[in-house]
Design a protein around this nucleic acid. Sequence first.
RNA 1: GCGGGCGUGGCGGAACCGGUAGACGCAGCAGACUUAAAAUCUGCCUCCCGGACGGGAGUGCGGGUUCGAUCCCCGCCGUCCGCACCA
Length: 874
Amino acid sequence: MIETVTPEPQAPRYDFRAAEPFWQQAWDKGGCFAVADVPADGRPKYYVLEMFPYPSGKIHMGHVRNYTLGDVVARYRRARGYNVLHPMGWDAFGLPAENAARERRTHPAAWTWANIRAMRAELQRMGLSIDWSREFATCQPEYYGHQQRLFLDFLAAGLVERRESWVNWDPVDGTVLANEQVIDGRGWRSGALIEKKKLSQWFFKITRFAPELLAALGELDRWPERVRLMQANWIGRSEGARIRFPLTTALAGFEDIEVYTTRPDTLFGMSFLALAPEHPLALSLAESNPEAAAFIAECRRLGTTAEAIETTEKRGFPTGLTVRHPFLPGRTVPVWIANFVLMEYGTGAIFGCPAHDQRDWDFATAYGLPILPVVSPAQGKMPETEAYTGPGTLTNSGFLDGLEVDAAKRAAIERLAEMGWGRGETNWRLRDWGISRQRYWGCPIPIIHCASCGAVPVPAGQLPVVLPDDVTFDLPGNPLDHHPTWKHVPCPRCTAPATRETDTCDTFVDSSWYFARFCAPHADSPVSREATDYWMPVDQYIGGIEHAILHLLYARFFTRAMQATGQISVAEPFAGLFTQGMVTHESYRGADGRWLYPTEIERRTDGTAFVAGTDEPVTIGRIEAMSKSKRNTIDPGAIIDRYGADTARWFILSDNPPERDMEWTEAGVAGAYRFTQRLYRLAEGVAAAHPGAADASGDGSAAARRLRRTTHRTIAAVTEALESFSFNVAVARLYELAGAMADAEKDAAAAPEDAALAVARLEALEMLTRLAAPMMPHLAEAMNALIARDSAVLVTDQPWPTFDPALTAAETVTIAVQVMGKLRGTVVFPPGTPAAEVIAAAEAEQNVARLLEGRRIVKRVHVPDRIVNFVLAS
RNA sequence: GCGGGCGUGGCGGAACCGGUAGACGCAGCAGACUUAAAAUCUGCCUCCCGGACGGGAGUGCGGGUUCGAUCCCCGCCGUCCGCACCA
């Protein structure tokens, strides 16, 4: 009988499959990451927050990157002695749940909660240092009920109002969208062409805070510059004037036309006035003038997409009306309706000065209107084929002649004010935030509509207004509206039969204050003043750049509104903001052009790719953001199964700076995995040789000094790297320390009696363990368990290492020697060696001496411990 | 069009305050170990000339400042992002 022995595949030294759950339980048992709502231990606080996820059901690599970054910060701060608040929750309202309900006949709540369960489990496998006791979902009445209370407080404070307005109607989603949610004329989710519709809507008066929201950007010095710029542009402050132009003949109740301009200085160059197609006067004209009506209808057809703006010509319709000029008695100016004038900005009407505004120039050229220059350029001369918009001196402008542009603006405004024709005005691009959505799966707006009392707030005692469970999705429109009983309630004021508001809040409302709720998630008021006084603002907020405007601006508004209504004492929610890059991957297509998942292909050694198990060639496409449509996604769960959470975390951190897009590669993860094994082997080696409480006296051996220097330099470098979000550099420094430790193992093998080296090796390992812990927490615990004198102390509970500056000092420095700025050799000296000595040696250096021979040295530059440069006569 | 960022080996990237450019990783090549492979370890790895020593070029391109520039200044080119008829 022949016994076949199949060799077992060599088991990895470090078994992450057993270790990771084990240490997660240990942290859990130790309550490591739980903090009090109001800690009284006197430690400094640090609030780390990553943007909470929408519970789609599966985490993706973007989440892994986001939460890894946050976890490194949280664990690092914790080791530095801070009380760290690091919570997690769910942005749980929103359309996908309703779509799922329609498609699969499940209930949005059931779908959402199943997703939350799945995603929580996946996140927990990552080993994040989260205080899970603070978890909540925004779809819980315990959360959104408080949101209703905030809504009513804001209403009482005059920060909410209901008004009729033109809205962006998404015909596919069947709901209203905010301007910010309309991209190139299409819905940000559905991609459907947006229609204009008039509805009664609830608005948060964000414009009330426009000046503060703009001014405070200047103090957010731990925000990326570009986010602040984007917000500033979005808020869009402009200074100008509002001017009333009297019509020479009143028409249908209109006696004048109001215009907003930033260039009142160019009034003398005015050659027309133009109305937006939606301007009330234009609409009024259209009633009696079919040509005007036809023109307006045509304008409406043309969208405001980027392409449309680029390609659409400026077109207008002469109304036959004229207005009087403020500064030129007797002068009349024609009134046009023009397709390029926006109703939403300013007054919906402009005055045109073609010489100094490109759009007006284009318009005037098309219709043969006069172009009269009134600003002569400070330098050069007036361009002949375009408008001049630069600085200069006023001409052809009566009392403004000779003034510079800025002075002329002031003078013109002053004169207009004296005449009673106009005044200076600051205008904002930002518009109020319409929050009404005709949707079921959102926070109900706590209002009751009564025929006699109007819109009545739901009394505090009746909150929360809870969503009904028994809804159906078989009709188009809002299920809340279809519900047989839910909306029928007595008026709280007069008890007459009334109806509930059936609109729910835009889900951006839910995410506008969750960070404050996390401070005391079980408080019976929306936020706990004590807890937020302790924890707010968020010290480090981390998320995607895609939220640079909407979410962050809304959250800033909400915080100010909460401050105004006395709920919170801070004005700004996020003291520090970090925006991470995307995770990208190669994309693959089969012979027929279909997209293929990375798991469906195999790479051959020559770099070509084939459909796994076949000879069908695969085209390797661009590296781009992971997306379901391109199928270039990697499932984090599969990566953790195969390599473990630490490997995934380490690779994500090591690849590149976190603000840039990173490319996920199989080779990169494999490399990270090898390193985890290498570290563990190293730890085993050192632990096995660990001589016990050896004490090294004196300076020790050169090998010991060398290792200690690297160790302490690494502590300094990793600390600095983590402080500055340079996680890839921290990783590089740890690779170096590991390399130095491997060298030391060889030194130790050659000199087993070197007690100082044994101590240095143990020190290096301990420090490496603690420095790596924020990034690879499970492995760090396992390594710590190998060497710990007191195995009960988790690395997670150990303080951040400090370095001894004396030990980081180099024994020798290599000084570069240049001749005429070119490197020609090096000399080695102890640091601080006097210039004369170094220069002499540099001159004597073989190769340098050869080049200096027969030449006159004009200058000897010496930078201590760095460089010597000889400048020769030519 | 306006605003902002970024251009460094085959790739990701590093570089203190203007002071040895290319740390560290990935890929690649060579070698050791092995019956073999995997794993591991060692070495090489910007380009060009040269056996080595050495020399030349080099941080998108062109100029400037400086003893010395990836870094500061001027002018281009490319690329990415945001906003976009905002008066």
